[in-house]
Design a protein around this nucleic acid. Structure first.
Lengths: 219, 219
DNA sequence: AGCTTTTTAGAACAAGCGTTCGACGGTTTG
DNA sequence: CAAACCGTCGAACGCTTGTTCTAAAAAGCT
């Protein structure tokens, strides 16, 4: 009986495994992916366990063998996603040292991860469990804050080199808004290359729409 | 029997209305406000008609006297909001002529309206009816596009005066993302003055985080 | 006063919800 | 071979959902 909070699944080591063992992902993975996709499109409350069962190919009651329930599914998705995001960012940042270069790395990492796992990131940033009353919500919130803090520290270091018209906190939130967008309003073409998109966001955020030209309207 | 699609409610003109007639808003208004607030906090699917009944003080069945059903409630909220947003923006823009000044006016108008009616704007930008299959969804989408177009035209005019590193469409979406944020990530203090907040967004968007300084990391 | 129209609300409806239960076949263990 | 366990699923449970029905109270009119 596997538990969803199992750290690293002490599965039996296949010493002499069958040769043609297809390397298909374990069912928990399939389940979480299907759930994330459905949550992302229909919303948490708009998704029924029967929807997830249908989309994942697992029977309704079978889901409860792998997870404790609907809210646990959401928690697991959000928890894994923010963990992966933090780890991925840390690795990306270790490659450069200059503040502006680290900023670009952070943006590229976030955009890239969002592009690879759009459903998971969307569920992380847009959904919240109405029922899942626990310290779980706070646990996710805490890690999210940790991730935000990483960005803010970078911005502080950038600010030390160049003048900034707004606070670090405010600028950080705005940058997150840009990176998390756009599934709203005009909906910019999502198929532009990750590197290019990251660069566009970076340039717009750092230099502004007028590209650093001296121009301000009278208040 | 009032109809929700009634254009301007041909109510009887109170020629000699009772003197102490309390000027409390008509019930439809109360209903829509309560529904918008609940939709904004619990989400469309997470909100039950009984929730709305409770929050509005109107009985469950009484709601169906004023509206056709749940999805109609959402449509009415979104439709009224985008209409008001367009009208409000048009009026604000008529006050100035210079492109950058119009841009600031647009931002101020949007932020101000979002501050006055946060629930309505949130429902407009974040919620969508899963069931409300109709030309209604497209009707709202069309008007939304109209509103987006206003911003893009302004940006085009700004671009004619100053060089811009990104496309008008992309920049417009990013600006909307900034203005619609932040109910995510770090959650910037929402209680800062509307005028100041608008100015911060404007400055960050136009001049960038480095305030127009010459600085770019090596790619 | 009566009569008609507008507005309210309790009760009930079928459908869908999250979750649990008990049993099934298949593999591993003794 | 029997026993224990693992993974899986159909069926059912109690409860909530959006919506409708019916009737009674409130308001307007003559």
């Amino acid at each position: 009986m596997p538990d969803e909070t199992n750290p690293t699944s002490a599965a039996a080591i296949p010493t002499t495994a069958p040769v043609a063992a297809a390397a298909r992902p374990p069912k928990l993975e399939t389940l979480l992916t299907a759930a994330a996709t459905t949550f992302a499109t229909r919303g948490y409350s708009g998704t029924s366990m029967r929807d997830i069962a249908h989309d994942s190919g697992i029977s309704l009651s079978g889901i409860y063998y792998y997870t404790r329930g609907k809210s646990s599914l959401l928690y697991e998705i959000q928890s894994r996603t923010i963990d992966a995001l933090i780890a991925s960012a840390a690795q990306a940042l270790s490659r450069v040292t200059a503040p502006t270069e680290q900023l670009l790395q952070f943006v590229e990492n976030h955009v890239s991860y969002s592009n690879d796992h759009p459903a998971f990131v969307r569920v992380l940033s847009h959904e919240t469990a109405p029922d899942g009353s626990d310290e779980r919500r706070e646990a996710v919130g805490l890690k999210r804050h940790e991730y935000v803090k990483v960005l803010r520290d970078i911005l502080d270091r950038v600010r030390a080199e160049y003048p900034a018209p707004v606070s670090t906190q405010f600028a950080g939130d705005m940058l997150f808004a840009m990176m998390s967008g756009p599934r709203q309003w005009g909906v910019t073409d999502t198929e532009l290359n990750v590197g290019i998109a990251s660069r566009l966001i970076y340039d717009l955020f750092v230099h502004g729409f007028t590209g650093g030209a001296k121009a301000a309207p009278a208040p």
